[in-house]
Simulated scan of single mutants.
Amino acid sequence: MAGGGVKALAGRQAALDKVRSQLTGPQPERKRLRRPWRHVTDLTPGAVLAYRVSSGRLVLLRVSHIDDDRVGCAPILTLVRYLGDALPSQQEIDRLPDAVDGSCPLGIPIDGVMNAMVFRVAVHRKKDPDYRALGFEPLAGVLQPRPGDERFDSLLCSYTHWEGLASIMEWYAGCH
């Protein structure tokens, strides 16, 4: 073995001896780990959110259900086929269909890139703004579950955050 090989071997042996003494020697005191932060939404299934886009018109979304997993509890929102200047009455909202057929709230076709009408809206960090801070206002009253809500699972929806959803709503309203 060359002179460099013997020196390298001695260095490796010293490192292994150090690790062995750390593993077999006295251990440090247990450290208490902090549980990771997990966002939990205050929205409930059936809640309806109104969002006023920059043109002044209102877009409506409803909470079809809540997706609860190990990293958070996020609402699954379905776009409602409505784009108007004023809030509709509760009776009108009850009759409004979901816009899940690949068209804008007004029935204008959407290209293949932006065809999602169901969104899983997550909050990843404590400092991320919540829906109220971005202009999404919950309306009084709730909608009853609709047939097919169970098909809007987290695999079939677009993942976004509240700021991203606001941008998407601007885009949808702009297709009028």
Score class of each variant (00 low, 15 high):
83 L>P: 07
100 V>R: 10
80 V>R: 04
99 A>G: 03
58 L>Y: 03
116 A>L: 12
95 R>T: 02
93 I>P: 05
136 F>G: 02
58 L>K: 07
75 P>S: 08
97 P>N: 06
109 P>M: 04
71 V>W: 10
90 Q>L: 10
122 A>K: 12
110 I>E: 14
60 L>V: 12
59 V>S: 02
57 R>K: 14
93 I>Q: 04
113 V>A: 15
116 A>C: 13
98 D>Y: 07
134 L>W: 04
125 R>S: 04
116 A>T: 01
68 D>K: 14
116 A>I: 01
69 D>N: 12
136 F>A: 03
57 R>S: 07
115 N>G: 14
63 V>K: 04
114 M>K: 14
114 M>L: 13
86 A>F: 08
58 L>V: 10
74 A>D: 12
140 A>M: 15
71 V>P: 05
71 V>S: 10
131 Y>I: 01
141 G>S: 07
71 V>Y: 11
104 C>A: 11
89 S>H: 08
110 I>L: 15
81 R>K: 08
79 L>M: 11
139 L>C: 13
64 S>N: 07
95 R>E: 01
70 R>I: 13
94 D>I: 00
72 G>W: 08
139 L>V: 14
107 G>T: 00
103 S>N: 07
110 I>W: 13
139 L>G: 13
66 I>E: 08
61 L>W: 09
102 G>I: 01
70 R>D: 11
89 S>V: 07
71 V>R: 13
79 L>D: 02
79 L>P: 00
103 S>H: 12
141 G>H: 08
58 L>W: 03
58 L>D: 00
112 G>E: 05
136 F>W: 02
73 C>Y: 07
70 R>S: 13
96 L>F: 02
92 E>F: 02
55 S>A: 14
62 R>K: 07
100 V>P: 06
70 R>F: 09
128 D>S: 15
78 T>L: 12
100 V>N: 10
99 A>I: 01
71 V>H: 11
